[in-house]
Write a protein that binds this DNA or RNA. Structure first.
Length: 549
RNA sequence: GGCCAGUUGGUGAAGUGGUUAACACAUCACCCUCUCAAGGUGACAUACAUGGGUUCAAGUCCCAUACUGGCUACCA
């Protein structure tokens, strides 16, 4: 029996040829240096922060080169696939503004001419290519059971040999086509393996855009390319998809580096032009238990999930800025000098991407987030905070959006100036920072007046202030001058410098008087500029809150 | 066990044979100041994994070792 006959026996219903598919998916009409790349997650119901990093990187390179960025769902492992996993990816990416030019937009529709973009819908495409390989003698059916493979491994372990299906251990490699046909007709279960022509004693140089040239032994493992369920393995799907989707750059995480010799071999077996590869180092952290460094883990580290940042209200821009700074050398410095620029104005380069894993640093992320938020216009911040609250804090959302102008003016305190206030690190901080500005939340109060704690004195201060000095029409200088007059009248130092020199001459200072008023109005000892707060609160609220004391 | 990669202060990270080994975050101090956040100034930090070699000169080149991570699945 010929190879071709065997191929027909295995895939009787596959009629399209590789040429048919070549014609269906023509080479893209783009300029020479345009990068076509993809984000290719598995729908496991979870987006890892490292995957998000990869998607940012992929999108950036495609965009900056005038190329194409597409989304492909890798769901060939039916066991890991989760209900609604595809929508979770699509929605998750949307939250972080990872938009793509092609790919699924929901479970049934997609955009782009190189689809389907969901691997489980591409079964017969893969099989056409597997069939081609079989008819050329470059792939063969393997009837080994899991138990047999296990035996082989044990034997190899015992003899301290390399583990895998290769050489003499590749039992099914030399089965005659007739024998294969007999067993197939007999109903024996089988998979398809690639017949490797590699020699482990020879070396091959693989090029990685980030890591440079890497010297490997050639691959001589006959890896599985088609599983018993008819779906391809990752390696084979990668070959077919990235070729047919005309991918120029495969940007993926580190764990794939060691598959490079195999992937080279697979592309060569078809005579396809190989894509370029870039492998991104993983994100790690220090394990509290062991003290060692380990990869960010889905199970142990909440910050591993992309949704963690969304729930906290850390802007996606900040996450992206952070990932860019730890990942791409030179970026941080550039950004310090160009704080108002768009991230995409920075020219990313593969060789500037870090080769080594970086430890995830939440402090730094928070700092970046804080700085980013501080530069936002009050109206922008208002919009973003509202959107956040609507999803995560309905109660405060109602209060916050009831009077847009009022809330915006609160957010605008010490904002939109050269050195803006940086008290908000993420959107979930907003409630903690400004709740006291809303009457409906100004209940169940606990006052701590700090230095002056005699209630009679406090009442006296407030009484004189509100009746004698307070006027809602004062400008800031007048307001503060009156504060000083109040100090002089009551025996407190109005001049801080003088007070520091002679603290014993006074009952306290203008700082303490201010504190009494601040706490009466807000209950907090730390607030933004008191004058601004009073201006926004307005006379009625001020009088009412002071009269409560 | 085999193969591959990585290793510069607490963290990220510049650095491609000659520098006092940048910078950012964190920490601390002082200044400024109505509090806080900022801002300013400064400090701290046993930073080039270890051991050999090449060289007038090594974080930088070579070799070994250690440690960490990845791969070694009909997972991706």
């Amino acid at each position: 029996m010929s190879n071709k006959e065997l191929a027909d026996l295995i895939f009787p219903n596959i009629t399209k040829t590789r040429e048919d598919y070549e014609n269906m998916y023509p080479v893209r009409d783009l300029k020479d240096d345009a990068i076509v790349t993809r984000y290719a997650p598995s729908p496991t119901g979870f987006i890892h922060i490292g995957a998000l990093l990869a998607s940012f990187t992929e999108k950036t390179f495609a965009k900056q080169s005038g190329g194409v960025f597409y989304l492909r769902i890798e769901d060939t492992d039916t066991k890991r696939t989760v209900d609604n996993g595809i929508m979770e990816i699509i929605n998750g990416l949307k939250e972080f503004e990872v938009t793509f030019d092609e790919g699924p937009i929901n479970e049934n529709e997609s955009i782009g001419n190189y689809g389907p973009y969901i691997q489980s819908e591409r079964k017969e495409i893969y099989q056409a290519f597997v069939k081609h390989l079989i008819s050329e003698g470059k792939a063969y059916p393997c009837f080994c059971t899991h138990e047999e493979i296990d035996e082989i491994r044990k034997e190899q372990e015992r003899d301290k040999l390399r583990i895998g299906y290769y050489g003499n251990y590749a039992k099914c490699r030399n089965l005659s086509n007739d024998e294969c046909a007999r067993r197939i007709k007999n109903g024996d279960s089988f998979i398809i393996r690639f017949r490797s022509n590699g020699d482990y004693n020879k070396k091959i140089i693989c090029h990685d855009e980030i890591k440079g040239d890497i010297l490997f032994p050639e691959n001589d493992l006959d890896i599985v390319i088609n599983k018993a369920d008819g779906l391809p393995t990752y390696h084979f799907a990668h070959l077919v998809d990235d070729h047919l989707m005309r991918t120029t750059h495969v940007i993926r995480s580190d764990e794939w580096v060691s598959s490079l010799p195999l992937h080279y071999q697979l592309f060569d077996a078809f005579g396809f032009k190989r894509p370029k590869y870039a492998h991104i180092a993983p994100l790690a952290k220090v394990d509290e238990e062991t003290g060692g460094v380990r990869k960010l883990s889905k199970r142990k580290d909440p910050e591993c999930a992309m949704s963690y940042y969304h729930k906290l209200g850390i802007p996606y821009e900040a996450v992206r800025l952070y990932l860019a700074t730890i990942t791409s050398s030179g970026f941080e410095e550039w950004y310090i000098h160009n704080p108002d620029s768009n991230i995409d104005d920075y020219k990313f380069e593969f060789k500037k991407i870090s080769k080594s894993p970086s430890l995830f640093d939440l402090d730094k992320l928070n700092n970046i987030s804080r700085n980013y938020i501080s530069r936002l216009k009050a109206t922008d911040l208002y919009d973003k905070v509202s959107k956040y609250l609507e999803q995560y804090d309905k109660e405060f959302y109602e209060i916050f959006t009831k009077d847009k102008e009022y809330s915006t003016s609160i957010l605008n305190i010490e904002r939109e100036q050269k050195k803006p206030r940086k008290d908000i690190g993420c959107y979930s901080d907003v409630r903690k920072e400004i709740w006291y500005m809303y009457d409906s939340l100004f209940t169940n109060l606990n006052y701590d007046f700090q230095k002056i704690n005699n209630l009679d004195e406090i009442r006296n201060i407030l009484d004189i202030y509100i009746n004698k000095y307070y006027s809602s029409s004062d400008d800031k200088d007048t307001w503060f001058n009156k504060m000083k007059m109040l100090c002089d009248e009551l025996g407190y130092a109005s001049d801080m410098k003088e007070y520091k020199v002679n603290p014993d001459k006074y009952k306290g200072s203008v700082a303490d008087i201010s504190m009494v008023i601040r706490v009466s109005l807000t209950t907090k000892s730390m607030t933004p500029d008191l004058y601004e707060i009073m201006r926004i609160l307005g006379e009625d609220r001020i009088r009412e809150r002071i009269s409560k004391i």
